[in-house]
Amino acid sequence: MSASESGLPSMYYDRQFGLSAAKILPGEFFVTSQDMLIVTVLGSCVSACIRDPYTGIGGMNHFMLPEQRQDEGTLLSASARYGTYAMEVLINSILKAGGRRDRLEAKVFGGGRVLQNFMVSNIGEQNARFVKDFLLLENIPIVAQDLLDIYPRKVYFFPQSGRVMVRKLRAIYNDTIIQREREYGGRLSQEPLGGAVDLF
């Protein structure tokens, strides 16, 4: 079973790993019970890779908190409500696919400072803090993390085994990542609420 907030993500066959793969973009998520790969590229956004290790059912999201407006007050307002939705829709899809809430575990990635001058505050830090606080509140243990720093990351998640590979894009200035997140951040502010490989 698979699910995505905006329909099926881009699917392809990954020759390097010999597996079917789903590539998710900002604002999307994907859940599967199959032996496959979920891939995304993160700048200031964060991804939570959540799974039930007993069943191997798991998924990944890719989200950013909307820009905080002057009249919003604290982060725990419209921005946090959006982040909560992005997390809950992933968790609920895993449960619907047969995962059990009391067995869920998470690995979290992203929140790099790559969008200089994009927002008044550091949105990468806000995203990283939010995802950690949310999982703590929901009693879902974080068993691995790679957050903050200044690099974009490419994340490969294998839900059945729980393995995650992270490639930090140190040598590549990827304007596509930055432009994609700028456009995504712009959409969020207008929409209603609704290098080296590291193993984790």
Rank of each mutant, 00 (worst) to 15 (best):
159 P>V: 06
162 G>Y: 05
121 S>C: 08
107 K>M: 09
137 L>D: 13
136 L>H: 12
168 K>H: 13
161 S>T: 15
117 N>V: 08
161 S>A: 07
145 Q>L: 11
150 I>Y: 14
161 S>F: 09
156 Y>D: 01
143 V>S: 03
131 V>L: 07
128 A>Y: 08
107 K>P: 00
120 V>D: 14
111 G>W: 04
162 G>V: 02
139 N>M: 10
113 R>G: 08
145 Q>R: 12
157 F>Q: 06
163 R>T: 10
133 D>V: 01
127 N>V: 05
158 F>S: 02
152 P>I: 06
150 I>F: 13
125 E>G: 02
119 M>S: 15
168 K>D: 04
161 S>I: 00
133 D>S: 10
144 A>L: 01
167 R>S: 12
153 R>N: 02
166 V>K: 04
160 Q>H: 09
144 A>R: 04
147 L>G: 00
129 R>Q: 07
155 V>I: 15
131 V>G: 00
116 Q>W: 15
131 V>N: 05
130 F>W: 06
168 K>R: 14
136 L>M: 10
135 L>H: 04
164 V>F: 11
145 Q>N: 10
150 I>S: 12
154 K>A: 04
131 V>Y: 05
135 L>Q: 02
137 L>S: 11
153 R>Q: 15
135 L>M: 07
165 M>F: 14
112 G>S: 13
169 L>A: 05
117 N>C: 07
128 A>P: 02
121 S>Q: 15
166 V>N: 04
